[in-house]
Design a binder for these strands. Structure first.
Lengths: 198, 198, 198, 198
DNA sequence: AATGAATGAGGCTTCATTCAT
DNA sequence: AATGAATGAAGCCTCATTCAT
């Protein structure tokens, strides 16, 4: 019903690449999916409720009806994602029978699996978290810190062990470098790529 | 004259942190400086010409007078930056008397120096290049590719030499991982930090 | 609510001369009516959405809400008008039992009735059609051509008949001269004038 | 020096069709020529000083420097044209030895020659005169009336003579019909057309 | 004669949101 | 669950104009 809206960002295809199966799903789910797709491409500020509505084929009012506000969309995306993403690794971290190198190995695998599976949400998480306001913002920052500290602790464990690894390096910087390497994969990783580059 | 504009992004301070010296400089220069500051914080889409104008203390029309359009600002920021950033490393790359590992070492230092000095412009370059349109866009993409290929060639040189380094790794993926590690520093690096983390 | 806007075109009265009856009608209808009035006076380029909004007593956004864009207004005016205006005369044209002179007579009456009743829309049609863009423009041009060809065909029929009328005249030029004479009435015809001139 | 400005009216070619001879001429003359070209296509309101400046290859300030204001351009175009256009026919009109039909014949030839030679200025005169303000406006209206009355007087002369022509027709309406027929040629007449239509 | 800097006013459009239905 | 009407605020940009040079 709603006329095709002109999208100034030509690298953004309206038809979701993900909907191969065309599985019938609720309006809400369609909205979340589409929001993730759009935001991961053009960012929170670059996304507009109107474009979202057009893509899903509903009216702007309906989008608001589901999420209360634009920030509500960002929040929904993150809430569906963040908690799991933080807690899932804890068991490994706290497993006293594992040495640091093994933990780091596992962590990188864990994190990269997330990149592979949800690089869209992850990049939103990284780039657009700053646009949250109020309480949501505090919660978001807290969670980011907690997640990062996991790696710091692993590095510290490694340094405390017999290896030469990371000797004399600051654990925080090292942790950030490793996270950076992984996270930046959001930018270049392409599904079904056999990681052979291009 | 222009009333202080309400800024919805509360983490963005209007008073430039960089202008300690308050060196008198041209309107154009003030504009570029401010644009870089704002864009590196809230992105191209998050920046508005009105905020820019208010921060510099001129009218919106004057901003347009200098840059023709909003995209013109992004373009100006990148043009002032990109060319140097690409060519400067070439001599090292083409130096036949250097082995791969040394080149990589030098590249990382070179790139990280850039991060340290101009993380603001670099992050704009990475995050907002996609908003260029038309010919500027093509040029931008071309330059990005060229810069990236430098690292790929270094990795390949290393692989062709006697070291075990990067053995059996795809050079493109490896290059991207290294670039990612460096570039991500834009996110966490803070000037005058002794790199002790936080 | 909206302050009376200063109108730079002083010969344009804001209060519609046509709304004698002040019949309550929808916002959309009010908009179309007003747009026709304004455009027929100052042309498409001379009309502004803001003036329109003020005259109808709504906000600029609401005007866009109804027409999507300024060009949408022009389009709506023409679409409400053009189709009828082209098809209505066809039966006469195709009536094989009528001679050319009769047809011409009927056409001029038909066309002048239109001038008398809708000189406003007609003059917009003539003067501002060129500001349509894209597909609308093509459609517009096609329709104009079709309408004009009706007269050409009548002239040709007359020339093929026993009359001396239009002997040796080019039918296209003659048709255009006749249309011109009629259309120009938009400029000087005033309702309720007993056609006594002034 | 000035970047090519985007022109939204695609049927308007920037390169003057008239400048075949590329005769070197003063900036002022170039401006008048260009203004006539542009205004005759898109009207006074559709023309902008910026586009004019770009087309002539000078700055906006220079345009103002020559004409004081935008209305000054319109005025200049009309002043260069109107006086001649009114006075030139007077001798014929006042020639007592000519009968009305001959005068009308001569008038139409005279007027159509003007159309043929200066349809651009004539159409500006007809369509955009209403945008003059102040004293210029009064003068303009006065001149228009005078010119029109010439035809009325010819018609009246014809009616007072022995012909049956225009018998029982209102002279004002008839005059307007004739003027309309002629003037409308501005819309369709194309130079070098052998008037064979299309 | 010609221009660049600067601008206020306004123009079209987008956008997030509210409200009644 | 969903929407259309309506809007205020803001966004980008155009435009005519002024002024100093």
């Amino acid at each position: 019903m709603s006329a095709k809206r002109h999208c100034s960002v030509d690298f953004l295809t309206y038809e979701s690449e993900r909907d191969n199966g065309k599985i019938e799903c609720s309006t809400y789910d369609k909205l979340i999916k589409t929001a993730i797709m759009v935001m991961s491409e053009v960012g929170y500020k670059g996304m507009s409720i109107g474009i979202l509505a057009d893509m899903v084929g509903i009216s702007k009012s309906t989008v608001i009806h589901y999420f209360k506000s634009k920030e509500g969309i960002l929040l929904a995306v993150m809430e569906n994602f963040l908690p799991a993403y933080i807690d899932e690794f804890k068991p490994v971290l706290n497993n006293k029978s594992l040495d640091g190198v093994t933990k780091l190995n596992k962590f990188v695998h864990f994190h990269m699996k997330m990149v592979a599976e949800r690089k869209d949400v992850l990049s939103i998480n990284i780039k657009d978290g700053k646009f949250l306001t109020g309480k949501s913002r505090t919660v978001y920052q807290q969670q980011q810190r907690l997640y990062g500290q996991q790696v710091v602790r692993i590095i510290q464990q490694i340094q405390s062990e017999e290896t030469n690894l990371f000797k004399d390096l600051d654990p925080h910087v090292t942790a950030k470098a490793i996270m950076g390497m992984c996270n930046h994969a959001c930018v270049w990783y392409k599904k079904n790529d056999i990681l052979t580059g291009r």
